[in-house]
Simulated scan of single mutants.
Amino acid sequence: LTNHTMTLQGNFDPNRLNSSPATITKMVGEMINRFGKDRYIANLGHGILPNIPLENAEAFIRAVVDWKPN
Rank of each mutant, 00 (worst) to 15 (best):
L1S: 13
L1D: 10
L1G: 11
T2V: 00
T2Q: 08
T2Y: 04
N3F: 02
H4P: 01
H4T: 04
T5Y: 10
T5R: 15
T5N: 15
T7E: 09
T7L: 07
L8A: 15
L8Y: 09
L8F: 05
N11H: 10
F12D: 03
F12S: 06
D13C: 11
N15W: 02
N15A: 12
R16N: 14
L17Y: 02
N18M: 08
N18F: 08
S19Q: 12
S19Y: 09
S20T: 15
S20R: 15
S20N: 10
P21G: 11
P21N: 13
P21V: 08
P21M: 07
A22Y: 05
T23F: 01
I24V: 15
I24E: 08
T25C: 14
T25L: 08
T25K: 14
K26R: 14
K26N: 06
K26T: 08
V28Y: 01
V28W: 01
M31W: 05
I32Y: 00
I32M: 03
N33M: 04
N33Q: 15
G36Q: 11
K37C: 11
D38V: 08
D38T: 13
R39L: 04
R39P: 00
R39F: 00
I41E: 12
A42F: 07
A42N: 09
A42Q: 11
N43I: 07
N43Q: 12
L44T: 15
L44R: 09
L44W: 03
G45K: 10
G45E: 11
H46T: 09
H46A: 13
G47R: 12
G47W: 05
I48G: 07
I48N: 12
P50E: 13
N51L: 02
P53M: 06
P53I: 03
E55D: 13
E55I: 08
N56K: 11
N56C: 04
N56G: 06
N56L: 04
N56Y: 02
A57P: 02
A57F: 00
E58P: 01
E58R: 12
F60T: 06
I61P: 04
V64A: 05
V65P: 01
V65M: 07
V65E: 07
V65A: 11
V65D: 10
P69Y: 03
N70G: 10
